[in-house]
Amino acid sequence: MNKRRVLRFILLTGVLFPSVLAPVAFGLSDAYKGNIYEVGTLKSVDSVLRVKVGDRAPDFTLPSISGQKVSLSQFLEKKNVVLSFVPAAWTPVCSDQWPGYNIAKDIFNQYDAILLGITVDNIPTLFAWTNQMGQVWFPVLSDFWPHGAVAKRYGVLRSDGISERALFVIDKTGILRYIDVHDINKRPALEDLMGALEKLK
């Protein structure tokens, strides 16, 4: 019986070993050189949503890196809106998410959608970080003060003060049509977001 247990242990170890030790891959760009802070693997989700598909999206007004304030309500009846919360500037996965959206402007336009990028970092940090990506075409908003208030209202503020990696699609009438609170360690596939926008047509 003991031998059997030992054999089972070896078997399990062999199967689990590669998957446990294999690090989370994120494909970091060399553009950031040594300026990315390694955060390791985090708890995939650490908050509880406070909105659901079908709800009216809570309005907010936040400062942007361009110096202007941006409100969700200013897009009512004009544009579909994608809110992209990313956890923090200068971290691995986040640094390789928005640059992809940056070359997908045509696709967002095709769906008559505006993208609003949001983090809980302050404006100077966001300014420096997004400059490293090249100029981004979409508004980048700071949910720094009161700290993470918008993230908290949507239910994507984690217990350590950063936000989830979350996508919200809001239609022109202000209704939430898609929510993806993604595993913080992984980048959401672009086609999933675009599939959600396709459904608004």
Partner: peptide, 25 residues
Amino acid sequence: MRRILTVLTMITLLFSIIVFPALAA
């Protein structure tokens, strides 16, 4: 049963040795 477990263990160990280096350099 013991033979099956031994064979499974060997396969698993071989899998770990062969596949793991291919998974992550």
